[in-house]
Design a protein around this nucleic acid. Structure first.
Lengths: 141, 141
DNA sequence: CTGTATCCTTAGGGATACTG
DNA sequence: CAGTATCCCTAAGGATACAG
C-alpha cells in the first residue's frame, strides 16, 4: 500500500500546491531563500509567529520533498543549519514574481522601491544575484 | 472595529498568501486565467474535483478581493460569467513561473514541451499573449 | 538550542440534499 | 444552471510544557 495522497493530478500547479499550498511553507522558504535565515531559532522568530510544532513539521516535509537539507553547522558542531537545495533555489523566480505582485497590489506592503526598480530593469540579474547569494551561504554552512 | 484577520504583516508574500495561500484558490485562478473557464459549471468540473460549496466560497472571496467580477452573460442574460480583473491578470507571470517550476520538478506532469520551449526563448511574449487572450475573452463576456 | 509531545479548538472541506 | 444549506469529520494549527 503506497502512500496515496489525494488523487494526484498531472498539473504542475497542482503539484506545486502539494508542496507549498498552505499558509506557512512559503514563508519558511522565503526566510531561507531571501532572508538568509538558516537556523531553527531564526526561522521561528519571523514576524508571522509560526508555532514550534508547525515549523518542525514544515521543515520535515521540505526535507522529504528535497527542498532543504539539514546539516551540522561546521562552525559549531552542536548546531544545525538548513540549506536550500537546487530545487528550492529554482523557486526564486516564482517567489520574486509573487513579491512584485504583492507589492504592487498591497498599499500596505513595505518592499524597498529599489528592489522593484531593479526588477523592472534587470530581472534576470536580480534573480541570479539572489540565487548566487543562497549558494554562497550554503557553501559556508 | 475593523475586520481584523490575523495580524497582517507588511510582507508581500504574506499578503499574497492571504489571498491564495490555500489548496483551491490558485486552481480556480488557473482555470480562469489559463484555461478559459468562465462559468460555474466549467470551474466545477476541473480534474481536482472541487466541492460546490468550496467553489462558491472561493469565488466570493476572489470577488471581494477584487480579482474577479461576476457578470451577466451578454449572449444569454440568464447566465453568469466570472471575469478576471486586471489584478488577477497581473498574476499571470507568477502562475507561469509556478508552472515551469512544477513541470521541471515533477516527472509526472504533463506540460506541453512546446510551452516550456516558448518560455525559454520568449518569456515576455508568452506572458503577453496569455494576458491578451484573457482580456479578449473578457471583452466577449 | 532544537526540537517533541500534548492538548484543545477551529477552519477547511467532502458529501449530499435542496432551492430560485 | 448556479449556487445554498447542512451535516459531519479530519487536518491544521495555536499554546504550552517538556526533553535530549
Amino acid at each position: 500500500m503506497q502512500a496515496k495522497n489525494q488523487a494526484r493530478s498531472t498539473c504542475p500547479i497542482s503539484f506545486a500546491l502539494e508542496i507549498f499550498g498552505d499558509r506557512w511553507t512559503l514563508l519558511v522558504l522565503r526566510d531561507l531563500l531571501l532572508r538568509g535565515r538558516r537556523r531553527y531559532r531564526e526561522l521561528l522568530r519571523s514576524e508571522e509567529g509560526i508555532a514550534t510544532n508547525v515549523l518542525a513539521d514544515r521543515l520535515k516535509r521540505l526535507e522529504r520533498r528535497g527542498l532543504i537539507r539539514k546539516l551540522r553547522d561546521e562552525a559549531d558542531g552542536r548546531q544545525f543549519v538548513y540549506a536550500a537545495t537546487p530545487l528550492a533555489i529554482s523557486l526564486v523566480p516564482m517567489l520574486i514574481e509573487m513579491i512584485v505582485w504583492g507589492a504592487r497590489s498591497d498599499s500596505g506592503s513595505d518592499v524597498d522601491p529599489a528592489f522593484i526598480a531593479r526588477f523592472e530593469t534587470d530581472r534576470e540579474g536580480l534573480i541570479a544575484e539572489i540565487q548566487a547569494e543562497v549558494r554562497r551561504s550554503n557553501g559556508l554552512a
